[in-house]
């Protein structure tokens, strides 16, 4: 019924345009110009919509989904085992990785016998949905509050392990992302992988 050749105003504020002759007051334009200045001056005294960005920052959510981090475990070994589930779950297909086998003398570097020798996230493809975080069976990848900054070249947006893996001396705190549900799940002895 509604669609039957009737123009429907979505906002309900549309005005019907007419071609009737203007009156003298309208023809000299001055009242309209003064009214326009009034609106402009009115805005000088309103609260500013902008902020001075680097000095002032807008509040963000505690679990803001920004740049990824590849976590290390308590002993400083990389948690990621290159299982590929993050890449599988990624709707934007932003994650690629190459797996490698851990050698005998690398046991202090990697947690499992397999690790990611190359792990890349294309930040231009990434939509920061957090599905990789959810899919990860090893609690290796998390999103952080840190923003992905602008850059000059497309190739610079492909973040490798040098950017993503957290430094051993500067650990990234992700405990706020571990909700009570997540923590109770982790303590559950019935879940075999938690032991």
């Amino acid at each position: 019924m509604l669609l039957n050749n009737h123009k429907v105003s979505l906002s309900g504020r549309s005005k019907i345009v007419s071609n009737k002759d203007m009156t003298f007051a309208e023809k000299i334009y001055l009242p309209a110009i003064i009214a326009g200045f009034g609106i402009t001056i009115h805005h000088f005294f309103k609260k500013k919509a902008t902020i001075q960005y680097p000095e002032v920052k807008r509040p963000i959510a505690d679990i803001y989904r920004g740049k990824h981090v590849l976590k290390r475990d308590d002993e400083g070994r990389e948690r990621c085992t290159a299982c590929g589930l993050c890449a599988l779950s990624c709707p934007a297909e932003a994650i690629t990785m190459i797996a490698a086998e851990r050698k005998e003398d690398e046991k202090h570097l990697y947690r499992e016998e397999k690790y990611a020798s190359v792990y890349e996230i294309n930040m231009l493809r990434c939509i920061f949905c957090g599905l990789c975080e959810e899919a990860c069976p090893k609690e290796a990848i998390f999103l952080t509050n840190e923003m992905v900054l602008a850059d000059l070249h497309r190739s610079d947006f492909i973040y490798g392990k040098d950017v993503l893996v957290e430094p051993s001396d500067k650990r990234v705190d992700i405990s706020i992302r571990q909700t009570p549900e997540v923590l109770s799940f982790k303590k559950d002895k019935n879940q075999t992988h938690n032991r």
């Binding site: 299982c83 589930l85 499992e112 016998e113 397999k114 069976p137 075999t192």
Partner: peptide, 9 residues
């Protein structure tokens, strides 16, 4: 439960 490491997964 080493499916993340196992090639058969």
């Amino acid at each position: 439960l080493d499916c993340p490491v196992c090639d058969q997964a």
